[in-house]
């Protein structure tokens, strides 16, 4: 617990430099007034928190400060931390793999280049290590060498993989994998899909088909869609969540690449407008850099020196 918090804090230290670090600087020895709140607004927006969430955070801070007769700039830090952790509110959806009906299915979706395959490698390693029988379906039959990439990950994590050749129908691979998962008594089937921009209707249809096929092959299994979002994405992340949710549902988000500079902010923007829990956050390249998301820890990490 302590270790994971330490790691989160350190990984986010650059976010901290952009959110908290700057806020600490501007609030020190100042009174709460409009100018100060304007500066904080700028800091939040520059962290991808988004106009709407920023406005709301600022308003709540303004109101709480007024209601509680707080005047010192430093008080803002506490207020903001509370508000952010309230905003992220819901407890992290327990990354439940254990389902009464085996296998559970995770459909991993997202736009191009967000790190789907890498994340699957990490997930497989993680669940396999905790004693689950994991099976991977290599349904990215489009991108060159995607199958090789996921195969290498499967080997590394010591789990089985169902694959076909490049250009094959992804839904048929999903179907085979679903059957194999059942026959082999797997606990979890992780389906890798090709990256697709959410604006491409035909590709989204293909995704729906994959989901339909899996549902059909495993009528009793829970099929959960997990959407991967690149942590450096701006407000477009909202559209991604909306459109993917419309197409195949979205039971949880996984935010990757949070070890860059501006990260995590968009998470607040998403929390402000949409009701989707965050399951995991990716903090680096190595396998154990994928961590379960805990809103309280996250808010705290943002606001710890």
């Amino acid at each position: 617990m302590l270790n994971s918090f330490e790691k989160l804090r350190r990984s986010l230290s650059k976010t901290k430099a952009s959110i908290l670090g700057k806020i600490t600087q501007v609030v020190s020895r100042r009174k709460i007034d409009d100018d100060l709140l304007d500066e904080i607004e700028q800091i939040l927006i520059e962290a991808d928190v988004g106009v709407k969430a920023t406005m709301r955070l600022i308003e709540s801070v303004r109101e709480s400060a007024h209601a509680n007769k707080l005047t010192e700039g430093e008080d803002i830090i506490n207020l903001l931390q509370q508000e952010i952790s309230k905003l992220l509110g819901r407890d992290s959806a327990e990354a439940e793999v254990v389902s009464p009906v085996k296998p559970a299915v995770w459909l991993i979706v997202g736009v191009n280049g967000v790190g789907k395959t890498t994340t699957i490698g990490k997930l497989a390693t993680r669940f396999a290590a905790s004693g689950q029988k994991v099976l991977i379906a290599a349904c990215d039959t489009f991108r060159a060498a995607a199958i090789d990439q996921i195969t290498i990950w499967a080997e590394r994590s010591g789990v089985d993989i169902i694959k076909s050749q490049e250009g094959a129908d992804p839904a048929s691979v999903a179907f085979d994998a679903a059957r194999a998962a059942k026959a082999r008594g797997a606990d979890l089937l992780i389906v890798d899909t090709a990256g697709r921009l959410h604006t491409k209707t035909n590709l989204m249809e293909e995704l729906k088909k994959i989901r339909r096929v899996v549902n059909k092959a495993l009528p009793d299994s829970p099929v959960l869609s997990k959407l991967i979002i690149d942590g450096s994405t701006g407000q477009n992340a909202l559209n991604q969540v909306r459109v993917f949710t419309d197409a195949v549902g979205c039971d949880g988000l996984i935010i990757t690449k949070l070890d860059g500079t501006a990260k995590g902010g968009v998470l607040l923007a998403i929390a402000e407008e949409l009701e989707v829990p965050v399951d995991f956050i990716g903090l680096g390249e190595s396998v154990d850099d994928l961590q379960e998301f805990n809103p309280e820890q996250f808010a705290k990490a943002l606001f710890t020196q």
């Binding site: 991808d48 994405t233 701006g234 407000q235 992340a237």
Partner: peptide, 8 residues
Amino acid sequence: DAMTGQDA
């Protein structure tokens, strides 16, 4: 990436 946020 055209989708990048403020960090671009």
